[in-house]
Computed example of a mutant assay.
Amino acid sequence: MTPFAPKHMDRSSETTTPGPSTSGAPDVSDINGVLRRDQAALSRIYDRLGGAVFGMCRQVLCDDGLAQDVAQEVFLRLWNEPKRFDAERGPLRSFLLREARSRSIEKVRSEEARSQRETRSELRERPIAPNAESDALQSLTSDAVRGALLQLPEVERSAIVLAYYGGHSYREVATLLGTPEGTIKSRIRSGLSKLSSLLTIDGLEVEP
Rank of each mutant, 00 (worst) to 15 (best):
E181R: 08
G90D: 10
L140A: 11
L199E: 11
T200R: 12
A52T: 04
L49F: 15
E181V: 01
R124A: 13
L192G: 13
E81R: 08
A129C: 06
I184V: 15
L42Q: 04
E172Q: 13
A87N: 06
R98H: 14
S23C: 07
Y46R: 03
L198K: 11
Q72F: 00
A87F: 07
R114P: 10
E205M: 02
A174R: 02
D63K: 02
D30F: 06
D27F: 01
P3I: 01
R117G: 10
R189T: 14
G191R: 05
R120Y: 09
S102V: 09
S13F: 09
S13T: 10
P91Q: 02
T2H: 05
S142F: 04
P3S: 08
L123F: 11
L199N: 12
L177T: 14
G166A: 07
P20C: 11
Q68C: 01
V206Y: 09
C57I: 04
Q39D: 13
Y165L: 08
L49A: 14
W79A: 02
L192W: 03
P153Q: 10
P180D: 13
M56F: 01
R48Y: 07
G191K: 04
Y164H: 15
K185H: 11
S142Q: 02
I105P: 08
S115C: 10
R109I: 02
S23V: 04
S23G: 06
S186P: 00
D86E: 08
P20Y: 15
R58L: 02
L61S: 09
F4H: 06
T179N: 09
I160R: 02
D69G: 00
Q138T: 09
D143F: 10
A40F: 02
E133R: 08
R11V: 09
Q138H: 14
D86C: 06
L92C: 07
G191M: 01
H8M: 04
C57E: 06
V108N: 12
R126D: 06
G19C: 05
G167M: 00
S134K: 05
D47K: 03
L152S: 13
L162Q: 14
I31V: 15
E207T: 12
Y170I: 04
I128W: 11
E111V: 12
Y46K: 06
A100Y: 00
R187F: 09
S158N: 15
P18V: 04
S21G: 09
E81H: 11
A25C: 05
F54L: 07
R36G: 11
G182H: 13
A40W: 05
K194M: 07
V155I: 09
K83H: 07
Y164T: 03
A144Q: 12
G167C: 03
A159R: 00
A100S: 08
Q138M: 11
D143A: 13
R120L: 05
L195I: 04
E118R: 13
S115W: 04
R93L: 08
E154K: 12
E172M: 00
Q138N: 15
T22Q: 14
L198P: 14
R93T: 05
F54I: 03
V70I: 15
R11Q: 00
R58S: 03
R101C: 04
E73A: 01
Q151D: 15
S158D: 15
E14F: 03
R98L: 09
